[in-house]
Design a protein around this nucleic acid. Structure first.
Length: 776
DNA sequence: AGCACGCCGACT
DNA sequence: GTCGGCGTGCTC
């Protein structure tokens, strides 16, 4: 794929088809199903209104279908309404759902007594496109519909509307008897209504004074909404001047928004090329078009920082509604409610923001679309970028994917004409791309117990001598990734897990990065009892920092990783110090790779480029390219191009050669060819079937039985079962089967058929991961 | 997800 | 003889 910069690439095709399109399944028609063409097919969203006062209700529980209830036919709640209904021995809040016609037909033959709905909530019903999306996403990911609905309803009781809080507002009248205390309270209340406690503390008096003023007529009791509305984005506010490329891209996107149709659109441009301004313009266009329209900007969790929110505020004169894992309960409720009302028009959020109850979503932007953080790996497993595209395709609005290093999936979608693409060239302020070179560690070997090659050391020396900053990148937290007994060879692992304990020397502890387990570093080997025999093997950032401090005793050296000892504020402080030029050498994990601009950083050293290539899952090379391209891109500034040195023992690896030559498109083409030959995504479909059990023998039996039960089908290949790379985790053993199919096979239908033929084994749990990214 | 039903160990 | 462990199954 090559982009003529400023020109849209990709044949025009009207189809809103994505790779995610799947057919509704009908169990006994396997042949038809398995080889059906891929066009997505509208799921039934129409109301089967023939049955008067009967409604289906879906509960936010891991249940695959909705349940039928009676209701007063006079005020039958529309689809999407929140209702409370008796369910088993208790009452549960659910959502009125489209009834499944097939299910209904079955039931009509049976006499069935239905219970009645208890209550219909006053809240705005969920939008039809969200209901449709939940149905589709459940079918695609193979999770029960109710589990998907739970993603929408995770904010407890938010649909009940505001729990009004009592506040006191100044009436404007002064009671006859005034005191200094009363004056102070009235002064505090004159700005905005506040609670008795707030007024009392603002005035430095007791709450008795506040209550007294109510009786005396100076204050009035009012109910206030505890969730203040969001300030509307100012759509007329002028953004910065756009470059020619940016303007072209913005206009191109605006045309598609104007046409009100779905398109996946890749915004392709290096860091600093101004992708953000292009999609800000798109947001403005989408929101201007319709006064009720809403837009969502998705970011990988890690990029969702205060600086980004401030940038949005600067552009639109108002902070967006935020959505991420760090929000407090109250903040979460505020965003959820205001989004549901349509009041919050611009949301900036992490992947789960996709499940907010937008009544009129008209645009989704997926920034850093290649980022692995979009893949939810726990609970309901889904890929937010893929679901975002599917949501836009089904609801008929555009979805923008922005990246400097787009995923192969997206690039192939562009090449095959399913997505559009606009390219941005050049860096802001004419900053140059860094000069990247490889250091072959076989020729340029560091001394024993050291990790920096002579060449890299020499470059750092040069940089120090001209007072420019250096970033040494190593994607490994802690001091050493492996702790080994020199006498008996025992490797320290977490209890019940096949995970190595990582030494963290700041805290003098051994830590498991997978389970969270940690222990003080023992002085005796737990197996052979040898004293002081435990040895640190391999480097982490702390160890490289130790080496750097030894080598450059006069340089200002800092370590930065997600667990830099004293706490999260430290991270901010280190980043600020780096920006301010108060650090000469920063040794960091990937937390430093994203979204920070260090003006005096001119040298980036990648300590171990081979780290991400080990293990060899299908996306290892791609991820390495993306990560290292981002990290090395940190080097350089307007007046002076930066340089990056990549240490590797695999200097012939095509990924690294492509990085050094800057030929991204050649790398992608080679990578695509490799995937195509093997039939891996995006040229084939892949699903992981994971089995877990505390009982290893039972797990083995179950996995083999499952393999044996796999139906033969043309274009379907079963791989495994194989033990997970981390076989035991927290006392649970895990095995995996992979299903690889041709692209025209309905993978979900195959899996349903397979699972039907598999006897459930007691104590063995099965989870499915459609299009897996993690193979741990 | 809850919650009940149901079938095997250590207690009044 | 009961209290209670959590495996299995159901909820319109």
């Amino acid at each position: 794929m090559r982009f003529a910069h400023g020109l849209p690439v990709g044949r025009d095709r009207n189809s809103a088809e994505t790779d995610l399109g799947i057919k509704r399944t009908s169990m006994n028609k396997m042949q038809q199903l398995l080889y059906s063409d891929d066009t997505p097919d509208a799921l039934a969203t129409k109301t089967a209104d023939d049955t008067g006062h009967r409604v289906s209700v879906l509960f936010p529980l891991p249940l695959p279908k909705a349940y039928d209830y009676l209701c007063d036919s006079a005020d039958k709640p529309p689809i999407g309404s929140f209702v409370a209904a008796p369910f088993g021995p208790r009452e549960v809040v659910g959502v009125v759902w489209p009834s499944d016609d097939g299910e209904r037909a079955k039931k009509k033959s049976k006499v069935q007594k239905l219970k009645s709905i208890n209550q219909v909530y006053d809240a705005q019903p969920l939008a039809a496109d969200l209901v449709d999306f939940i149905d589709w996403a459940a079918e695609y990911t193979m999770y029960p519909k109710g589990a998907m609905l739970r993603m929408v309803m995770r904010v407890k009781d938010a649909f009940e509307g505001p729990r009004m809080q009592t506040a006191f507002a100044a009436t404007g009248e002064k009671p006859a008897r005034m005191t200094p205390q009363r004056e102070a309270v009235l002064a505090a209340a004159s700005t905005a209504p506040q609670s008795a406690g707030q007024l009392a503390s603002a005035a430095g008096v007791s709450e008795a004074v506040v209550r007294g003023l109510v009786g005396a007529g100076g204050l009035l009791k009012v109910d206030v909404d505890p969730d203040p509305p969001f300030i509307a984005p100012d759509l007329l506010r002028a953004g910065p001047m756009l470059s020619g490329d940016q303007q072209y891209a913005a206009d191109f996107v605006a045309t598609i928004i104007e046409r009100d149709e779905h398109k996946g659109i890749l915004i392709d441009g290096v860091t600093g090329s101004g992708k953000t301004e292009v999609y800000f313009a798109a947001v403005a266009a989408a929101l201007s078009k319709d006064p009720d329209a809403q837009a969502l900007i998705l970011l990988p969790e890690i990029a969702l920082t205060l600086p980004f929110l401030e940038r949005v505020e600067e552009r639109f004169g108002a902070a967006p509604a935020p959505w991420h894992s760090e929000l407090t309960g109250a903040q979460r409720r505020r965003t959820w409610r205001r989004v549901a009302e349509g009041q919050a028009r611009l949301v900036v959020g992490a992947r789960s923001a996709l499940f907010l109850p937008f009544p009129k979503l008209k645009l989704i932007v997926v920034d850093e679309e290649h980022d692995g953080a979009y893949k939810q790996e726990e609970g309901v497993i889904y890929h937010a970028r893929d679901l975002a595209v599917a949501r836009g395709a089904r609801a008929g609005f555009p979805v923008l994917l922005a990246s400097a290093t787009p995923s192969l999936e997206t690039v192939v979608n562009v090449d095959e004409g399913r997505y559009e693409a606009v390219g941005l060239s050049g860096r802001f302020n004419d900053a140059q791309m860094p000069d990247i070179s490889l250091i072959d560690m076989r020729d340029d070997t560091p001394d024993a117990g050291k990790w920096l090659s002579p060449k890299l050391v020499e470059e750092v020396d040069k940089n120090l001598s001209v007072n420019e900053q250096t970033l040494l990148f190593l994607n490994r937290r802690g001091y050493a990734p492996l702790t080994l007994c020199r006498r008996c060879g025992h490797k320290m692992t977490a209890p019940g897990s096949d995970t190595m304990l990582v030494e963290h020397r700041f805290e003098n502890r051994l830590v498991c990065h997978h389970t969270g387990f940690s222990m003080p570093k023992p002085s005796v080997c737990p197996v052979c009892k040898a004293v002081d025999s435990l040895t640190a093997c391999g480097p982490g950032v702390e160890r490289v920092a130790e080496e750097a401090k030894e080598r450059w005793p006069n340089a200002r050296i800092e370590v930065l990783s997600s667990d830099t000892a004293p706490g999260p504020q430290t991270m901010r402080a280190v980043l600020d110090a780096m920006k301010a030029g108060e650090i000469d050498i920063l040794i960091a994990t990937q937390v430093a790779a994203k979204g920070h601009h260090f003006p005096n950083l001119t040298l980036v050293g990648v300590v171990d480029a081979d780290l991400g290539l080990a293990g060899g899952d299908l996306r290892a090379a791609e991820r390495t390219y993306q990560l290292l391209s981002q990290v090395t891109g940190r080097a350089g500034r307007a007046e002076k191009p930066g340089r990056a040195m990549i240490q590797t023992y695999q200097a012939d690896a095509s990924v690294l050669k492509a990085l050094a030559s800057g030929d991204r498109d050649a790398f992608l083409a080679a990578e695509a060819m490799g995937r195509q030959e093997l039939g891996f995504p995006p040229y084939g479909r892949l699903a992981a079937v994971m089995l877990r059990s505390p009982d290893e023998a039972a797990l083995d039996r179950a996995a083999n039985a499952m393999r044996a039960a796999a139906p033969l089908a043309d274009g379907v290949e079963i791989l495994g079962p194989a033990r997970a790379p981390i076989y035991r985790l927290r006392g649970i053993a895990r095995m995996r089967l992979l299903v690889k199919t041709r692209r025209n096979v309905n993978l979900q239908a195959y899996l349903i058929d397979w699972l039907k033929r598999t006897k459930p084994q007691s104590g063995v749990r099965i989870t499915l991961d459609i299009n897996p990214y993690s193979f741990m």
